[in-house]
Design a protein around this nucleic acid. Structure first.
Lengths: 334, 334
DNA sequence: TTGTAGGCGTTATCAG
DNA sequence: CTGATAACGCCTACAA
C-alpha cells in the first residue's frame, strides 16, 4: 500500500501540516524536525498523491496536447518541442491523438477538461470557429497550425505562405517557368496556405498559373509518387516540382527515378519542412526549413504565460519564420 | 467558474448522490429525474473533476509512458501504438521523454507515481535491474525494448536477435561473405542484440568474424554516413553492409553514392526497422520489418490486463516477431 | 427511488 | 515553530 502524508506524520511524531511544510518548503520548520521528517519520508518512499494535491491547489501541473496524428517527422517533432518546454517549466503532458473530426475533438476536450491547466490543440482540418462551442472557457487554449480567423483563441503557426512564396521564387530564379505543385491533404490549413504562396509567387513573376500543374496529394510518400505520374503527362512539361511537404517530395524523387527522369537536370524538385533526412537523399533535397520543434515549444511558453500570469490573454498570434535551404535537387547543374 | 456536482444537484433539486448516479449510470434513477438532471448538467456544461474522481476511486484512468526520446520514425510509432490502444480501452496518456540517465528516469517515475494507474517504461540504456529501486511497487510496470534479466518486471521487445540473424543469413545466401555491420548506439539494448544476431549468423555459415568490419554508429543518418567512409577503407573490401537501423542505412546509401559505389551491384545495403520511406529510397531498401506500432499497443494491453484484472502479473515476457523484407538494395542485380 | 454522511490525501488558515 | 481543522469535488455505503 502506498504511504500517505499521515503515515509520515505518525512515524515522525508530528502533524500532517508540518510534513506538508517540509515537503513543499512552505513555511518554517526547525532543522531538527525537518531532518527527521525527511528521513521518514525517504524510508516510507513517500510521494505526495497528485490527485489530492490537484484537488486542493486547483492546479494539475499538466498540459493537454490534442493532435490529429502522432506519427511522422512533423508530429513527433512538434510534440517533442511541447514536451521539452513543458518539462522545463515543471509541467507534464497529457497527449491525445487521432482526432481530426469535430466530434472526436469535442470528446477529447471533455476528458481533458479538469485534468489539465491548459490545452494545446492542433486542428488543421476543423476551423477553430467550429470548435469554439466545445472548447472550455475556464481553460486557456492555444491553437497551432489551425484556421483561427474570427476566434478568440491564441494561435501559432509557421509561415506557410511566406515559405512557399520564397521557394517558388527560388525556382523561378533558377530559370523555371513551368512549376508543378503537389498539394497537401485537402482541406488542411497548411495545404491552402502553401498553395496561396505558390500562386502568389507565380503571379508576382508574371507566370500564368496552369491548373493542370496543380495535382492533389495527401502528405504521404505514396501520394507524392502517384502525383508524379500525372505530372509527367502534362504538356508542355514542367521543369520543376514543388511538393507541399518532404514526404511527398521523397515519393516524387522515387517516381522520377523510376521514370528515368534525372534530378535536377531534367526536373528540379523541392519540398517543405526540411526534415532531417532531406540532406541524405540523393540528390539532397532543397526544402523550406521550419523549426517545428520551436512551434511546440513556443506554444507551451505562451500557454503557460497565461496559465500562470495574470495576463488575460490578449488574443495572441504568432507566425514562425521559414527559410529556403537550397540543395542539389534544384541546383542548375553547373 | 467551473460548475461542480453540487451546482447541478441544487439546480435540479436533487441530492449530489442522485446526480452522481446519472452521470455514472450507477444505481437506479427514475427516468423523470434523470432527464431533469441531464438537462441541467448540459446547461451548466458540467464535467466531473478528474482529480476529485481519482481521489475517491483510486483510479486515474491514465497510463504513464516514459521514453528516452520522442523524435523519429521509431519512437513516434511506438507512442502512437500506445496511445491508440490506451484510448481504445478508455485510458489516457501521460508522456514524458528525454530520459535516458538513471537519475532522470527516477525523477520522472516519482512524478508519475500517483498520477497513473500503470507505467510503460522504455529504457534501452539503463538495465531494469538498476531501475528496480526507483520503480514504484504499487503501480504495475511494463518495460519495452529494455534489458530485464533478473528482474520482476513484465517486458516486451522485438526479436532483435532473430531479425539480425535472418538478415545476415539472407545476405550470405545472396553470396556475400564479407559483411560489414554498422552498429547502433553503444550500450543500447537493441544494439547488442542485433550484434549478437549478426555474429551468430556469420558463425552459423562458417564465416570468420572480422573486427574491422564492425564499425560504430549511433542510429542517426549522420553516423551511417560516417561509418561508410571507414568501411570503404577496409581490405579486403566487404560486399555488403548491414546497418543496425534504417536511418543509418539511409546515411550509408548517401555516402556510397557520394563515393561512386553502386548499390547493389558493388555493395549491398540492408537496414533494420523497415520504416515507411524504406521503399521510397533509391534503390528501395531491404530491411527487417518490425511492427513498432504493435510493440506499443501490446504493451498497453498487457499493462491494462494487470491493472484491471486480478492477475498478480506473472512475470510476463513477450518477443515480437520480425520479418526480412527484400528489396533492390540487396538484390543480386539480375 | 432518493438522501445523508463519511472519507479519499493534500493544502492552507488560524490558533497556540 | 507547530498543530487542529476546514475545505477541495466526488463516490458510495447505509438509511429512509
Amino acid at each position: 500500500m502506498r504511504s500517505t502524508i499521515r503515515d509520515v506524520a505518525r512515524e515522525a511524531k508530528v502533524s500532517v501540516a508540518t510534513v506538508s511544510r517540509v515537503i513543499n518548503r512552505s513555511g518554517p520548520v526547525s532543522p531538527d524536525t525537518r531532518e527527521r521528517i525527511e528521513a521518514v519520508a525517504r524510508r516510507l518512499r513517500y510521494v505526495p498523491n497528485g490527485a489530492a494535491r490537484s484537488l486542493t491547489m486547483r492546479r494539475t501541473y499538466m498540459l493537454g496536447a490534442l493532435l490529429p496524428e502522432l506519427h511522422g517527422e512533423f508530429f513527433s517533432e512538434v510534440i517533442r518541442g511541447i514536451d521539452q518546454e513543458a518539462q522545463r517549466q515543471g509541467y507534464h503532458l497529457l497527449v491525445s491523438s487521432s482526432h481530426s473530426a469535430e466530434a472526436e475533438i469535442a470528446r477529447a476536450v471533455q476528458v481533458m477538461r479538469g485534468r489539465v491547466d491548459g490545452l494545446i490543440v492542433m486542428s488543421p482540418r476543423v476551423p477553430a470557429s467550429a470548435l469554439e462551442a466545445y472548447l472550455p472557457d475556464g481553460v486557456p487554449v492555444v491553437l497551432i497550425a489551425s484556421r483561427v480567423e474570427g476566434t478568440r483563441f491564441a494561435s501559432l503557426c509557421v509561415d506557410n505562405f511566406g515559405g512557399a512564396y520564397a521557394m517558388v521564387s527560388h525556382l523561378v530564379e533558377e530559370g523555371h517557368r513551368r512549376i508543378a505543385l503537389i498539394e497537401g491533404a485537402a482541406g488542411n490549413f497548411d495545404t491552402t496556405e502553401r498553395e496561396r504562396g505558390y500562386r502568389a509567387a507565380l503571379q508576382k513573376h508574371g507566370i500564368e498559373p496552369d491548373a493542370a500543374l496543380q495535382v492533389p496529394g495527401d502528405f504521404t510518400e505514396f501520394s507524392g509518387y502517384e502525383a508524379v505520374r500525372r505530372i509527367l503527362e502534362v504538356r508542355p512539361a514542367p521543369t520543376a516540382i514543388f511538393a507541399a511537404n518532404d514526404a511527398m517530395a521523397i515519393g516524387a524523387l522515387s517516381a522520377l527515378r523510376d521514370a528515368g527522369v534525372r534530378v535536377p537536370e531534367q526536373m528540379a524538385v523541392a519540398g517543405f519542412d526540411d526534415i532531417p533526412i532531406a540532406r541524405y537523399l540523393r540528390p539532397p533535397l532543397t526544402s523550406v526549413n521550419v523549426s517545428i520543434h520551436q512551434l511546440g515549444a513556443r506554444a507551451v511558453s505562451h500557454l503557460l504565460s497565461v496559465v500562470e500570469g495574470a495576463s488575460p490573454s490578449a488574443r495572441h498570434r504568432e507566425v514562425l519564420p521559414t527559410r529556403v535551404v537550397v540543395r542539389e535537387s534544384t541546383r542548375a547543374a553547373g
